[in-house]
Design a protein around this nucleic acid. Structure first.
Length: 270
DNA sequence: AAATATACCTGACTGC
DNA sequence: TGCAGTCAGGTATATT
């Protein structure tokens, strides 16, 4: 379940193997992802070199000389580099064969991911409505406070809204709210500026720590399974419903918010 | 306009 | 052992 830290780790892992590499061929074995992979992807991409590997939200943007490959790992996707003769496993849907003798392989059991092609990235509808990057200077307490004015929605789904801030998935939303001492159901519009300072700081801190830990698994992107895996970050609340709060010992409670499980401490979070 | 529900998919797990 | 059922989760899209 790649969250933003896993996607960023993937970007850093594949980038050195892709830059200036020419694509020889693209093999699509199963085009049925969240949206169909374009039929002509092979024609569009073959012969081009990759010039830059970016991340925006949880989208990986593989810039080529003319056009950009937009990749999303969905829930279960991964990208890794393997030799051209690597055996094909069940969910290996796409291979991007490079002149280096390696290929970028996309694997995705649940097929929630995406692989699209665009020559007009700035105008792409998937990227148009995205809020600021959580780790950028654009994501501040002032910004969050301004955005949540008048909003009655619970704060947890609010910070998981990509139009507000990108890349805060369920795990990190739960953890950040715990760290900030905020109850997940608290109406967004009732947060004070101080609450926003706390929450923004914790989102940044937790995401940054996870990315830092991901750096230790970069070697896995070549030849290995390519999965950064679960960062060994300590989870205080996610997946711990019914267990004692690690700060105060109170039994952690679970509620559903927007169909998403939310775990919190009734004593530490108000 | 804002809030909420739905669809997509399959591995892992639970209960019979 | 196997089968049916449930859950998880990102996010675009539909519905209220």
């Amino acid at each position: 379940m790649p969250e933003l830290p896993e996607v960023e780790t993937t970007r850093r892992g594949i980038e050195p193997h892709l830059l200036n590499q020419q694509v020889e061929r693209v093999v699509v074995r199963n085009a049925r992802l969240r949206w169909p992979i374009p039929d002509d992807l092979d024609v569009r991409l073959s012969g081009q070199r990759f010039t830059k590997i970016e991340r925006r939200a949880k989208y990986l943007l593989l810039h080529a000389e003319v056009g950009t490959l937009i990749c999303h790992l969905g829930m279960s996707g991964s990208l890794r580099l393997v030799p051209h003769n690597e055996p094909i496993a069940k969910h290996d849907h796409v291979d991007i064969e490079l002149a280096s003798g390696q290929m970028l392989r996309y694997t995705d059991p649940r097929r929630f991911g995406a692989m699209l092609w665009t020559t007009e990235l700035a105008a792409h509808p998937l990227l148009l409505k995205l809020g600021p990057e959580p780790l950028s200077d654009d994501f501040t307490a002032d910004y969050l406070h301004a955005r949540l004015q008048g909003r009655k929605q619970a704060i947890k789904p609010f910070i998981m809204d990509n139009a507000v801030v990108v890349g805060v998935g369920n795990i990190y939303a739960n953890e950040a709210l715990f760290a900030a001492g905020l109850e997940p159901r608290k109406a967004a519009g009732t947060l004070s500026k101080k609450h926003c300072v706390l929450l923004v700081d914790e989102i940044k801190r937790i995401l940054a720590a996870a990315i830092e830990q991901g750096g230790t698994t970069l070697k896995d992107f070549v030849g290995g399974d390519g999965k950064p895996g679960y960062f060994q970050q300590k989870l205080f609340v996610y997946g711990r419903a019914g267990q004692p709060c690690l700060k105060c010992g109170t039994e952690l409670k679970e509620v559903k918010l927007g169909q998403r499980s939310s775990v919190y401490c009734t004593k530490c979070q108000r």
